[in-house]
Design a protein around this nucleic acid. Structure first.
Lengths: 183, 183
DNA sequence: AGTATATATTATACTTGTAGAATATAAAGG
DNA sequence: CCTTTATATTCTACAAGTATAATATATACT
């Protein structure tokens, strides 16, 4: 159950509405966690019931009213508890559809798999390109004194992304070579 | 929805009971997909309703009867359809609790985070150790003529695992260094 | 003799994730 | 002028994942 905690973490930086959280989530945590908009709203409701958050309705005319969420002391305590309890066995679990398909690829033509691997590699390179701009985004946010301490952690997750994608590219190249040899 | 397809893939190698599938799953696909035993049994039921499988009850005395599953032509067609439809955008999605915690780690002591990273690195090295034996397991299975073609794909996913874990170790070392500099 | 382990499946309750529709308006772009 | 985009949240339905207990027996270990 990390989505709730991701949202707690973001709200710990400042009050936000569901709409703002959804966008903040998608530009920060999205690389290592994905969530549907509807899921975010549902979790926010649940979190308010658990008293991790309180909300305040800000009326608007024309548009739906905004619901501004604020983290409570209980929510902050929960965030810290979660951060301190790192279950490494669980945290190393990864679900990777692409690898599962590779595992069974003897069932399809080698040429098809080689083609897929080439597209996979291209996708990784594209993502790397996109991530190369993350550095500047992070240092922009980091201008804010409050965020300065966080910057190094944000950067480390971005670095993970770069390492990961480079690794995937190398793996794809090696695997393509192996498959070309046997075909 | 990859669990069903993982089970289809395994049953494509030969008929198995839920119990056997559970064990086969855990020694082959478990690195990139995790599933509860109860989930496997439930999915098997659903798959039989969809006519991807048929089952045959083998009576036993003393123990619960065995339910031997066999993949149908429909199931085989579904497997191939799934294998051919590689949605790269979706397949690159990854959920990583550990990184999410890193992202928010400004909230906890640097020393605590450094400690966690050290344990993370140790865990990765341990997993690497365990994976180094996978090669021989694969070539054992590969003695079987039917499996010979699959061997190269199995090996490629194992290689991914090795690359991944090595990358994680390097990242952990780099991040530890960075954190030690600022603390 | 007693305990743990392996065998084999079912059941239940709950939590998360996925997908998409419905609603209503303002502002920006071609 | 018309279409798209952005704003902001709610709701429904379903699929998949998590967690644990119940059942019943044989065999292996200590």
């Amino acid at each position: 159950m990390s989505l709730k905690h991701g949202l707690l973490g973001l709200l710990n930086y400042g009050d936000m509405t569901g709409y703002e959280l959804d966008k903040a989530f998608k530009v920060s945590l999205n690389f290592f966690w994905q969530a549907q908009t509807s899921q975010i709203y549902r979790e926010l409701n649940a979190m308010e019931k658990q008293a991790w958050l309180i909300s305040q309705i800000i009326p608007q005319t024309g548009k739906p009213n905004r619901k501004l969420y604020k983290i409570t002391d209980l929510g902050r305590a929960e965030l810290k508890k979660w951060l301190s309890k790192k279950d490494l066995e669980e945290d190393l679990n990864v679900k990777n559809v692409f690898l599962m398909k590779m595992f069974f690829s003897a069932e399809v033509n080698v040429s098809e798999t080689i083609d897929t691997l080439k597209r996979y590699k291209a996708q990784c390179l594209g993502d790397l390109q996109a991530m190369s701009q993350t550095g500047s985004v992070i240092s922009d946010y980091g201008q804010n004194l409050e965020n300065k301490k966080s910057m190094v952690y944000w950067a480390s997750t971005a670095t993970f992304g770069v390492y990961y994608l480079n690794m995937c590219v190398k793996w794809a190249e090696d695997t393509i070579k192996t498959l070309e040899e046997i075909s």
